[in-house]
């Protein structure tokens, strides 16, 4: 069962803005019934101000597809088309309090429908998917789309690309090709990681280490019946003790180095983690 937020459930069970606006000024259609999800977005736009007066949707798809579509209509109403164009799939997901990662493609579909509708309003002919080189033949995903979504969402693995675009999720034949595209994107520009604070006082550092361990490390260990405790922090050295199932676990070494990696990523690069 998917772990949907209350807001996703609410927007699925009681979706807002369903149907089609009368005499729409813009129509955006994406997806297909064969792929398993499709969205038709219609907008009423004030031609003087370019402001979106009304938005309605029709969606074929799962709960998160319906909720994402409804969220999109709520997000765009009242915005000018310039403002609306700045909406990304992440905004849709955030509006819903987050989506399971396997369902992020639902938010991408929302963003694409909006882009298609605005292009339609501006009189730009709808970009035919075939124009770009199709990488994933099962779901008809182009290289252009993979690049765009990867860069916007800092995606670095094939699985993430599948979660966001479905590409690679059918027969799996194109996975090597997606890997190449990702290599190409990120060899030029490393993905922006959440930036870590520049300079920390000792107290701040200790607090941050505790926070990272509590937030990022312990839930995973606890799920496997283990745990970790901070024993002491001396300068850049963090001394920890593994507890529960982690004690004497063959993978303890791996666990410790992954804790170190996480702390280096989020606190400071020179951190060394040692077991008590």
């Amino acid at each position: 069962m998917w772990d949907y937020t209350e807001k996703v459930k609410d927007f699925f069970l009681n979706p807002k803005n369903i149907g089609e606006v009368e005499n729409p000024d813009a129509i955006g259609e994406v997806g297909s019934i064969v792929c398993g999800d499709a969205l038709r977005l219609t907008l009423k736009i004030d031609k003087e101000t370019n402001r979106i007066l009304d938005a309605k949707f029709q969606t074929f798809g799962c709960a998160s597809a319906i909720a994402s579509s409804s969220a999109l209509t709520e997000l765009v109403k009242g915005k000018t088309i310039e403002e609306a164009l700045k909406i990304t799939n992440k905004d849709i997901a955030d509006f819903l309090g987050g989506l399971p990662k396997e369902k992020m493609h639902c938010s991408v579909m929302g963003m694409e429908a909006l882009e298609a509708a605005i292009a339609n309003y501006k009189g730009i002919p709808v970009k035919v998917e075939e124009e770009g080189r199709v990488v994933c033949k099962c779901f008809n995903v182009t290289e252009e789309k993979i690049r765009k979504v990867a860069i916007e969402n800092h995606l670095t693995t094939v699985e993430e690309i599948t979660d966001y675009t479905k590409a690679g999720g059918g027969c799996g034949e194109c996975q090597a090709e997606i890997e190449e595209i990702l290599k190409d994107i990120w060899s030029v520009k490393a993905p922006e990681k959440p930036s870590k604070p520049k300079k920390l006082t000792n107290l701040q550092k200790i607090a941050l280490i505790q926070e990272v361990i509590n937030r990022e490390i312990r839930p995973g260990l606890q799920a496997d019946g283990g745990d970790v405790e901070i024993i002491d922090i001396e300068g850049n050295k963090v001394i920890i003790a593994l507890r529960g199932m982690c004690t004497g676990c063959m993978m303890a070494g791996v666990t410790i180095s992954s804790i170190q990696e996480k702390l280096r990523e989020l606190v400071a690069e020179d951190i060394v983690v040692e077991a008590q």
Partner: peptide
């Protein structure tokens, strides 16, 4: 089905 963009008349031919 009311939410869906597809229906008996709306479905693309190939489907």
């Amino acid at each position: 089905r009311m939410l869906s963009p597809f229906g008996r008349d709306k479905l693309p031919k190939e489907c």
